[in-house]
């Protein structure tokens, strides 16, 4: 949903906003492609997590593998097409199964998806503040819903989430009107047999959704809301995701259509992968192996997004932070020699 929501417009074709070059002696590179003096071209991504991952990969390539890299900005459609045509090599945060161009590209053997960059995949569902379930003695907040763990417990706690505008019902702060999740949430309320007690309240815009979540957290009030990760908001606030029945493809399709006969199913997790141009992947086994091993925890991504969106630091600074502090994570992705080089360069 994010991909369609946030796009950077591009006039036509590819507008190069060029950057940067590795200065290391390329001959020593374990990457064949880079050793030949070629530049690895990344697609510019408009959202924070994509920017962060791109910068992490680029830093490792430049400082560890001694590659030259470049980021080319463009709308999703333009950069994905360019990748399939071989003008770009790496698309760092690909939501598998979301983009028709990529699906076709993979089928035609022109693109190759590698790695699972987010452990456990994306998250989408219903959340409540942790203080609601566990209390927060520091803020003097009592645990109002100590047994609230899954959606089936919502009936018991419906009074906590009363809708001011319709006091007979409780409010699930839902999805922006017109997004896919709009219908899915309604379908889930039916499937979970909550629709006589709860109704979805559509916030009208993501800004409004974020602001009301923020307001509830600042006041320590109960709130039940739909959200997804990786996002800065879930990085910022301590939440508990309510457990939902296992994903069931058929049931989920019915929920998505808000079918009155919908059966219970969680939203499937999307897998985030790295999309590589197939020729590039074939030509450089070392780099492909590295991309295939790349993997972040949800927490790591959330933190990075938070630093970019809240502290207003650049994606490349966030990436440097990560490389300096999370060696245990990234050292598993690369051969020892590359890791050493990378570390040495950061010492300087």
């Amino acid at each position: 949903m994010k991909k369609t929501a946030v796009k950077i417009m591009l006039a036509a074709g590819l507008l190069a906003s060029a950057t940067l070059v590795g200065t290391q002696a390329q001959q020593n590179s374990p990457s064949k492609y880079c050793a030949a003096g070629n530049t690895v071209k990344f697609a510019g991504i408009s959202w924070e997590s994509g920017q962060f991952i791109t910068e992490v990969l680029r830093n490792i390539l430049e400082k560890g593998y001694g590659c030259k890299t470049e980021v080319i900005i463009g709308s999703t459609t333009v950069t994905e097409t360019a990748l399939i045509n071989g003008d770009l090599h790496v698309w760092a945060e690909e939501w598998e199964g979301f983009n028709d161009i990529v699906i076709k590209g993979v089928k035609d053997g022109k693109a190759k998806l590698v790695g699972k960059i987010l452990q456990g995949g994306t998250v989408e569902g219903w959340f409540v503040p942790r203080y609601l379930v566990e209390g927060d003695s520091a803020r003097g907040i009592k645990a109002l819903a100590p047994d609230l763990k899954s959606v089936s417990d919502l009936a018991k706690y419906k009074d906590l989430f009363k809708d001011d505008e319709n006091p007979n019902m409780s409010r699930l702060l839902g999805c922006v009107s017109g997004w896919v999740c709009d219908k899915t949430n309604d379908g889930k309320l039916t499937a979970y047999k909550l629709n006589s007690m709860y109704q979805q309240f559509r916030p009208g815009s993501q800004a409004a959704l974020d602001a009301s979540v923020a307001s509830a957290f600042q006041q320590g009030k109960p709130i039940l809301f739909y959200y997804w990760a990786p996002t800065s908001l879930l990085g910022k606030y301590d939440v508990i995701q309510l457990k939902e029945p296992k994903y069931n493809a058929k049931c989920y399709e019915l929920e998505k259509a808000n079918d009155p006969k919908a059966c219970a199913s969680a939203t499937p997790s999307a897998t985030l992968r790295i999309n590589l141009n197939a020729d590039f992947a074939k030509s450089d086994a070392a780099l492909t192996r590295f991309f295939g091993k790349t993997s972040f925890s949800l927490n790591q991504l959330q933190k990075a997004i938070l630093r970019i969106s809240e502290d207003k630091i650049s994606a490349s600074d966030a990436a440097m932070d990560f490389l300096k502090n999370q060696k245990a994570t990234w050292s598993k992705w690369v051969p020892a020699g590359v890791a050493q080089k990378l570390e040495a360069s950061m010492m300087k």
């Binding site: 001011d164 505008e165 916030p203 409004a208 602001a211 307001s215 600042q218």
Partner: peptide
């Protein structure tokens, strides 16, 4: 002013 007003008066009609 929409967002602060929203944070104070809760989401919705008010």
């Amino acid at each position: 002013y929409l967002i602060p007003v929203l944070m104070l008066f809760n989401l919705g009609k008010v």
